[in-house]
Design a protein around this nucleic acid. Structure first.
Lengths: 124, 124
DNA sequence: ATTTTGTTATATGAATTATAGAACACTTCT
DNA sequence: AGAAGTGTTCTATAATTCATATAACAAAAT
């Protein structure tokens, strides 16, 4: 899985990493049961600090995407989504969808963009 | 339009305000051509600082949702969306959609949630 | 004219982000 | 058993962001 970190971005590095790992899983590039690199190895690979990777891993665990086994490693193990998490995702989607609508995008256009986005992930 | 600011939230106040204004426009509670309250009046109303509201207004202008008329006011005036802004929104939607998929949500479920979200806005 | 408006400037404090180095205890590998 | 690798924890520092506060300014609105 190729990770691309942009230091100049206004998005924190640990968030960039979290997002790209999630997208890698969604794309099927990493499968449940597989392990992520150690925080040290990954940090060295990406050229960032160990703690930054560690923070990302804990964010992923909080999201229910990985399981951190103390002193051992981080394993991809998606939990079943809860109603609370579903509501959380929805609340974050809302302002983005609203923005599209306000700027004149049509419902159908938004739907199709999201559908094609999803198709590019799960397939292939 | 009712604005609800949560000081304890990890989302910055100016972002909460920006999002809720956009959602208010999407819901049709404020119409293009109408003005937003002055930064001072709104700040006093919300119990926050003037600069916080000002920051939100400039974010809204950058997004192309309102037009700030110097020394006068802020008018709702959505611009036609650009390809660049469309790509920006898509890039922000991506990690959220990915998270849903990874946690086991089905494509159809995500589609339907988004459709019903959009229907609750534009209608009514 | 007076008030109201957004703008600009300076300042402060708290929190966040990212880095760094070190030490610890447990796991894994040889 | 010993060595290496693991996440964890602690302390520290610097830069940036967020929110507030106060003040003054010039243009617009009343």
């Amino acid at each position: 899985m190729i990770i691309r970190i942009e230091a100049e971005s206004d998005i924190p590095i640990y968030t960039q990493l979290t997002n790209q790992i999630i997208e890698g899983i969604a794309r099927g590039e990493i499968m449940p049961g597989e392990s992520l690199p150690s925080v040290r190895a990954f940090a060295a690979d990406l050229g960032v600090n160990m703690h930054t990777v560690n923070k990302s891993y804990h964010e992923l665990e909080k999201k229910g995407v990985i399981k951190i086994i103390p002193k051992s490693g981080a394993v991809i193990s998606p939990e079943e989504i809860t109603a609370e998490k579903k509501a959380q995702i929805l609340s974050e989607l809302k302002p983005l969808i609203s923005e599209g609508l306000v700027l004149g995008m049509k419902k159908e256009e938004i739907q199709e963009l999201i559908i094609s986005m999803m198709n590019e992930m799960k397939e292939r």
